[in-house]
Computed example of a mutant assay.
Amino acid sequence: MHPFQVLLLPGWQDSGPGHWQTEWERLHGYRRVQQHDWTRPLRGDWSARLEEVVADAPGEVLLAAHSLGCILAAWWAAHTRHARKVHGALLVAPGDVQRPDLAAQIRGWAPIARRPLPFPAVLAGSRDDPYCAFERARAMAQDWGARFVDLGARGHVNAESGLGDWPEGHALLQTLINKD
């Protein structure tokens, strides 16, 4: 196996049964970063929790984020002292929390941090994601310095997308594990 702990960063309302993150946790033993409140997420609380988990990790970590978890990863990376511990990040279907309808539901997460990430990243976006326009996801990847992967029409790349343990996504994570 690899020497990195993989940290799963779910989005708003967590990743439930049938979600690829839940499958990866079960199949590969990856660690979900548990948040205090999945339904009323506070950016400061979620960032502090991620800071604590990364700081306490015995070695380097890989982040595998979905939806609001992507926005968390970018915000955290812009403010942390522990970015050097991140070997890479897989960012899947970021939620556009600056969109008025989402900003009303998930308050306090705008603006989205748009600095280049201080670690290698891959952003995988869907052409028909109901929570983020395709071009918006591509722009986030560019701003973050992430390699962009077009997933085609996969919805929000969640349990409703019917991906199961999503081997294609796991292969993207492996590209980060195997980087020089």
Score class of each variant (00 low, 15 high):
3 P>M: 14
3 P>W: 05
9 L>F: 07
10 P>N: 07
12 W>A: 05
12 W>I: 09
12 W>K: 08
14 D>I: 06
21 Q>G: 02
23 E>H: 14
24 W>G: 13
28 H>C: 12
29 G>C: 02
32 R>F: 03
33 V>C: 11
34 Q>G: 04
36 H>E: 15
37 D>T: 05
45 D>A: 15
47 S>L: 13
51 E>D: 15
51 E>K: 06
51 E>R: 13
53 V>P: 00
57 A>S: 15
59 G>H: 11
60 E>G: 14
67 S>L: 08
69 G>P: 03
73 A>M: 10
75 W>K: 10
83 A>W: 01
84 R>A: 15
87 H>Y: 02
89 A>M: 03
90 L>F: 01
90 L>P: 00
91 L>N: 06
92 V>S: 00
93 A>S: 14
95 G>C: 15
96 D>R: 05
100 P>Y: 02
107 R>G: 05
107 R>I: 14
109 W>L: 09
112 I>N: 03
118 P>E: 01
119 F>N: 03
120 P>I: 02
128 D>L: 12
134 F>K: 12
135 E>M: 09
139 A>P: 04
139 A>Y: 06
146 A>Q: 09
150 D>S: 06
150 D>K: 09
150 D>P: 07
152 G>Y: 11
154 R>F: 01
161 S>P: 06
164 G>L: 04
165 D>C: 12
165 D>S: 15
166 W>F: 15
166 W>I: 07
170 H>L: 15
180 D>N: 11
